[in-house]
Design a protein around this nucleic acid. Structure first.
Length: 281
DNA sequence: ACCCAGGCGGGCG
DNA sequence: CGCCCGCATGGG
């Protein structure tokens, strides 16, 4: 057992907010406990009521603490980021509602799968599909928890078997993504190559368009310039900044770059989550 | 019953 | 180019 000091971190909001980690971590909001397999082992993180200390339990404490710190982006200076994205009353309320919500930095392959599954879908069902994939194809760690399945394992499954996990028409994309990522492109090699480069390479994958590529760039590679625009972000931005008038994606992208600059990926996460849960339709 | 979901690829004008 | 359509599935 070890404790680490954290600032501007709210695990509850982070875990709830529709990111890859969300889709397989178990979270007990009453106890303030998250459990997830970090790729090699089971990790338990406890944070009571947005406190500044979290407790970590894992077989290999050191590895768990390092991975946790990276995955929850603890080295981000949130004071600076908030001052960059708190540009108006709407952003101010979003930050006040969900302060401490972090972007997470996830495995690129896992992120790719999660966001291919996200298209024309909803959070609840994405989560179920991801859990199903893990149960069927995931690899058990020695502590019994299950790691997200590697592309080799997904590739070995038939499209019909994948469809059986409830993913519908996305099975074709998942299957071909697994093939590409084992044969044609090395996802890990894209790390640190820069936003434009990462994004254009990701879009080579069938089933990965602009929005999904932005999600992967943001949450799988930590490219904070990525600004994924889904139906909620679009709706919310139109309502808040354009008097409810419809705007094209490109227009909204330019607006975001202008308004929130290099940290616009963080702005997007707050717009998305506050838009979906508070502004609603 | 009907509409929608963290969109995308393909086809058409 | 831009626009429009179908797509599997489950929940509101």
């Amino acid at each position: 057992m070890s404790e680490i000091q954290v600032m501007d971190l709210n695990i509850m909001h982070t875990i709830a907010s529709g990111q890859p980690l969300t889709f397989h971590a178990e979270y007990d909001s009453g106890a303030g406990i998250v459990k997830y397999n970090n790729g090699t082992q089971l990790v338990m993180i406890e944070q009571r009521a947005a406190r500044t200390k979290v407790r970590i339990e894992a077989r290999d404490q050191n590895q768990a603490a390092i991975e946790f710190s990276k995955r929850f982006r603890l080295s981000d200076n949130m004071k600076k980021i908030y001052s960059a994205i708190n540009t108006d009353a709407f952003m101010d309320s979003a930050i006040s509602n969900y302060g401490g919500m972090r972007l997470t930095l996830n495995d690129p392959w896992e992120t790719t799968v999660c966001f291919i599954l996200s298209q024309y879908n909803n959070l609840k069902r994405i989560r179920r599909i991801v859990l199903e994939l893990k149960e069927r194809y995931g690899e058990a760690s020695t502590d019994g928890s299950i790691a997200f399945p590697k592309p080799e394992r997904i590739k070995a499954a038939s499209e019909a078997e994948l469809k059986d996990c409830g993913m519908g028409f996305r099975a074709r994309y998942i299957k071909s993504a697994a093939e590409m990522c084992t044969e044609n492109i090395d996802l890990h090699a894209l790390t640190g190559k820069g936003y434009d480069n990462v994004k254009s390479n990701l879009m080579e994958i069938c089933g990965v368009g602009e929005k999904v590529a932005d999600c992967i760039a943001l949450m799988g590679y930590g490219e904070l310039e990525a600004f994924p625009i889904d139906v909620w972000v679009k709706r919310t931005m139109e309502k808040v900044y354009f008097k409810g008038r419809e705007k094209k994606i490109d227009k909204l992208m330019d607006f975001a770059e202008e308004k929130w600059g290099k940290n616009r990926g963080y702005a997007q996460q707050y717009i998305f989550w506050n838009g979906m849960n508070v502004v609603k339709r």
